[in-house]
C-alpha cells in the first residue's frame, strides 16, 4: 500500500500565500515542493503527485522540477542530513577530511543513511560559505562553519539529543585590525 499524504490547513494557507506572490500558478512549484518536503521529510513520487494536484499542474512538470534541484529529497533520508561541502575552498581546507571523519564516525558512506534512520551524509557542492571552510549544512537548514573533528563530535552528540545547532553568525572582520597593524 502506498502511503497517502495530505497537506494540513496551515500548509494550504502557506501555499495560497505563495501563489499570491506570482501572476501564475507554475511559479509556486518550487516553494510548494519546499512546503511538502518540510512537512513530509521528502518528496517521493506520491508527494510530488500531491503537489501537482494541489497546484493543478501536470505531474510530469513537478517531477521534472523535483529531479532538477538537488535539495529536494527524491527518496527518504535520515532525520538529519549532513551536507558536507567538498568544493574548492572546502577541499583546500579539509572538507574531504571532515567528510571521511563523519563517514567513519557514523559507519556509513556519503549517500547512505544510518540504520537507525537518524543520519544521512552527503558530499555536496559549494554552499557559499567559502571563508568558513570546511563546513556543512544540516538538513537544508543551519550552516555549521569551521569544522574540526571536535566540533563534529559535539554537533553529532547534540543532534542525537534532538538539538539542532543554533544559527552561527559569522561577522565581518573589522578593518581597524588591519589599519592598526
Amino acid at each position: 500500500m502506498e502511503e497517502t499524504y495530505e497537506f494540513t490547513k496551515e500548509d494550504l494557507d502557506e501555499i495560497e500565500a505563495i501563489k499570491a506572490k506570482f501572476p501564475e500558478v507554475m511559479p509556486a512549484t518550487l516553494p510548494t515542493l519546499w512546503v511538502a518536503q518540510r512537512r513530509f521529510g521528502h518528496v517521493e513520487p506520491p508527494v510530488q503527485r500531491l503537489v501537482a494536484e494541489t497546484l493543478g499542474l501536470p505531474e510530469s512538470h513537478v517531477h521534472g522540477v523535483a529531479t532538477f534541484y538537488t535539495q529536494y529529497y527524491k527518496e527518504r533520508k535520515g532525520k538529519y542530513v549532513l551536507d558536507v561541502c567538498t568544493t574548492t575552498s572546502c577541499q583546500l581546507c579539509g572538507g574531504y577530511k571532515m567528510l571521511h571523519y563523519l563517514e567513519d564516525k557514523l559507519g556509513i558512506k556519503a549517500g547512505e543513511t544510518t540504520e537507525d534512520g537518524l543520519f544521512s551524509i552527503q558530499s555536496v557542492e559549494c554552499l557559499g560559505a567559502c571563508g568558513y571552510a570546511p563546513m556543512m549544512q544540516i538538513t537544508n537548514d543551519v550552516y555549521v562553519n569551521n569544522l574540526t573533528e571536535e566540533k563534529l563530535d559535539k554537533v553529532i552528540d547534540s543532534l542525537k539529543d534532538g538539538k539542532m545547532p543554533e544559527f552561527e553568525s559569522v561577522g565581518m572582520p573589522l578593518l581597524e585590525n588591519i589599519n592598526n597593524k
Binding site: 510530488q48 503527485r49 501537482a52 501536470p58 505531474e59 510530469s60 517531477h63 529531479t67 532538477f68
Partner: peptide
C-alpha cells in the same frame, strides 16, 4: 504534458511522471 526531462546534466533523459 505527460513527459518531462528528469535529472540534470549528462544524467538527463525524458520520462513520464512516476507511476504514470
Amino acid at each position: 504534458h505527460q513527459l518531462t526531462i528528469v535529472a540534470r546534466g549528462d544524467k538527463n533523459y525524458p520520462m513520464a511522471a512516476p507511476g504514470r
